[in-house]
């Protein structure tokens, strides 16, 4: 039964990959990709949990107002809000990366630290 929850399994695997990338990868762009993956995985999980098979998106159509016709709108709403937050965070991190690249001409975080220390020692 557990194995048929394909979306949830995919979400957990994606979250693991994303988090590992975010923490362990030294490349800034890959870190940002990892971050986006963790957030997307959470949204996938949420969307999968919020879906009730056989029901439609919570937009009233053809005058059908019966509650049973539609899925719960709150998880979808949360996903939307979460996407906005995630986009804002990625944007700030990307902007920082651009400024760092302009200054150090590398995307490697360890290399940047080394250059910054060398700069300070001068």
């Amino acid at each position: 039964m557990l194995l048929t929850h394909y979306e949830e399994i995919a979400a957990v695997i994606l979250f693991g990959i994303g988090l590992t990338m975010l923490i362990l990868n030294r490349n800034m762009i890959k870190k940002i990709i990892g971050f986006s993956m963790t957030d997307s995985a959470i949204f996938l999980y949420l969307a999968a949990k919020g879906y009730i098979s056989g029901r439609k998106a919570p937009i009233v159509e053809n005058g059908i107002t019966a509650m049973e016709a539609y899925i719960n709108p709150i998880p979808s709403g949360l996903v939307l809000t979460g996407i906005v937050v995630s986009v804002a965070s990625s944007a700030v991190l990307l902007a920082l990366t651009v400024r760092l690249y302009k200054r150090y001409h590398t995307l490697d975080l360890d290399e940047m630290t080394r250059l910054a220390q060398a700069e300070e020692a001068d």
Binding site: F15, G18, L19, L22, I23, M28, K31, F35, T38, D39, I42, G82, S89, V92, L93, L96, T97, R99, L100, R103, Y104, L109, M112, T113, L115, A116, E119, E120
Partner: peptide, 24 residues
């Protein structure tokens, strides 16, 4: 300067890890 930028990037990355775990 370079150091504040670098620190803010590190701060942000650690905080993103924290936020992701909190959100999950």
């Amino acid at each position: 300067g370079g150091r504040p930028l670098l620190s803010s990037a590190r701060y942000m990355i650690m905080n993103m890890v924290g936020s992701s775990l909190f959100l999950l």
